[in-house]
Design a protein around this nucleic acid. Structure first.
Length: 478
DNA sequence: ATGTAC
């Protein structure tokens, strides 16, 4: 691989070589770059830069690591008329994302009942591989979920009418067409609404540990010492199946196109083609399912809090701050060389970071900017950031999505041998309940990059700004 | 990430 050019302390350019149509750009510090250099990640950033219709640059966020075709932590925008859309650029977990709710509670209110609270959450929130939820759907009803997203959940009693306002895209991509979703995907989705899943997915009871921006924190409803709920999950087996179906479909289709791919995992279709539109409509179904899933899970979490804390909804005050997706392709308008263009932004392990004034933001945040939710590992911290103009100008309104792994699942298991990760976290005041046999080892804090280092990069580069840090108290894992 | 398979 060619040399990397330093732009400044947090920006690096991978110059255009070979088939690259645009350069690559990596947001990270020097030590992160040294780690990224050793992986296939840079090759993947370069490969994406060779795809037809890509605009400006193939981007990588500081939490970047190797993924299927496209790296995780990557952002790539394609011209809506001349560009491609790729399932690998979205990822298997379509609309994997994060939702944050605040409460009126403070740490001192919850700490004494934390054990009971975490037990009750674990009991009532289905988690783990293949878990089934309490919502059982007919295919006809499931298709309504796929069309309506969050709205279906709210109309069926799961949460408040205003919740979709505090959800990216209002919790629904209107292009969704259930006729593009296979019977097999529909079958898998019937019983998984209101389930957490496994791996890095979690439900976390946390507390606001530090505020960096008082004004924005106030607009988001955050104050120091406040108890919060953070939820990380996606579209479960349904989204996985949609991705799998379309990867196979596109692998065949791409052979008919007049360009060759540097990696077969980048299979794609022209956005304007029937094949491209079919994927977009199916992907939108996966996205809507994930929003309904998080909406239902938040409602179930609220019910558990009410019972365990013995209080009414007004006293608990569990309010949705925001819900962001970090695995998705979106049709958006962006200024490119001073001209407004319609583009298809692929964010795979990257979060939208829209600034104050953006028309897509709900009224409450229009003058502040979009809340950006970035979970760290289960033992350290998560961050609330706010979107910026710099993101809009440089990264198609995008920033990082998490800590990013440093140890593979296998390496993590090896490193955890002979240790009790549960006890180590308990000693730090964090109670964890989990389902999977290897979850604690695979998800231990040492398996991830230091989240604060990732946050420093995006804050200092200006593609999102620090608002608050949350620390975990109780965690339910899959 | 994912009913660790077609």
């Amino acid at each position: 691989m060619t040399e990397i050019r330093k732009i400044d302390s947090y920006r690096w350019e991978l110059p255009r070589t070979g088939d690259m149509r645009v350069p690559g750009r990596i947001y990270c510090n020097k030590s992160m770059l040294d780690a990224i250099r050793k992986e296939a990640t840079l090759r993947q950033v370069a490969n994406v830069a060779s795809l037809p219709g890509i605009l400006k640059a193939s981007l990588a966020m500081p939490d970047v690591h190797q993924g299927y075709g496209f790296s995780i932590g990557g952002v790539a925008a394609f011209d809506w008329k001349e560009g491609v859309i790729s399932p690998g650029g979205v990822g298997y977990d379509i609309n994997c994302g994060v939702r944050l709710a605040t409460t009126h509670l403070e740490e001192k209110d919850v700490r004494p009942r934390l054990d009971a609270l975490v037990n009750a959450l674990y009991q009532h929130i289905p988690s783990g591989l293949g878990s089934k939820g309490s919502v059982s759907l007919s295919v006809a009803e499931e298709k309504k979920v796929l069309r309506q997203g969050s709205r279906w959940a709210v109309e069926n009693g799961f949460g408040d009418e205003s919740d979709p306002d505090y959800t990216e895209e209002g919790g629904c991509l209107p292009q969704a067409d259930p006729d593009e979703v296979s019977d097999r995907a529909l079958e898998r989705g019937k019983r998984q609404l209101g389930t957490l899943g496994s791996g890095n997915h979690f439900l976390e009871v946390g507390v606001v540990a530090e505020i960096y921006d008082e004004k924005v924190a106030r607009a988001f409803g955050l104050f120091e010492g406040q108890v919060t709920v953070l939820l990380h999950t996606g579209s479960r087996g349904l989204g996985y199946q949609i991705c799998d179906d379309f990867l196979a479909f596109m692998a065949k289709h791409v052979k008919t196109l007049p360009f060759s791919l540097p990696d077969r995992q980048l299979s794609c279709a022209m956005i304007q083609s029937e094949e491209g539109q079919r994927y977009f409509r199916a992907m939108a179904c996966g996205a809507n399912y994930a929003w309904a899933n998080r909406q239902i899970l938040m409602h179930q979490t609220r019910e558990v809090f009410l019972r365990v804390m013995g209080m009414g909804p007004g006293d608990l005050g569990m309010n949705l701050v925001y819900d962001v997706c970090h695995n998705i392709a979106k049709k958006e308008e962006h200024l490119i060389d001073g001209k407004k263009r319609t583009v298809c932004v692929h964010r795979k392990g990257a979060t939208r970071s829209f600034p104050a004034g953006h028309p897509d933001l709900c009224r409450a945040y229009r003058n502040v900017g979009q809340p950006v939710l970035v979970p760290g590992d289960m033992g350290t911290a998560s961050y609330v950031l706010v979107g910026t103009e710099t993101a809009m100008a440089e990264t198609f309104g995008s920033t990082c999505h998490g800590a990013g792994r440093v140890l593979s699942r296998k390496a993590a298991k090896k490193a955890a041998k002979g240790r009790s990760i549960y006890r180590e976290l308990e000693d730090r005041g964090i109670l964890v309940r989990w389902t999977g046999r290897s979850t604690m080892a695979e998800e231990m804090p040492d398996a991830y990059k230091d989240i604060s280092e990732v946050i420093e990069v995006v804050h200092n580069a200006g593609i999102s700004r620090k608002v608050a840090r949350l620390k975990p108290m109780g965690v339910v894992k899959g």
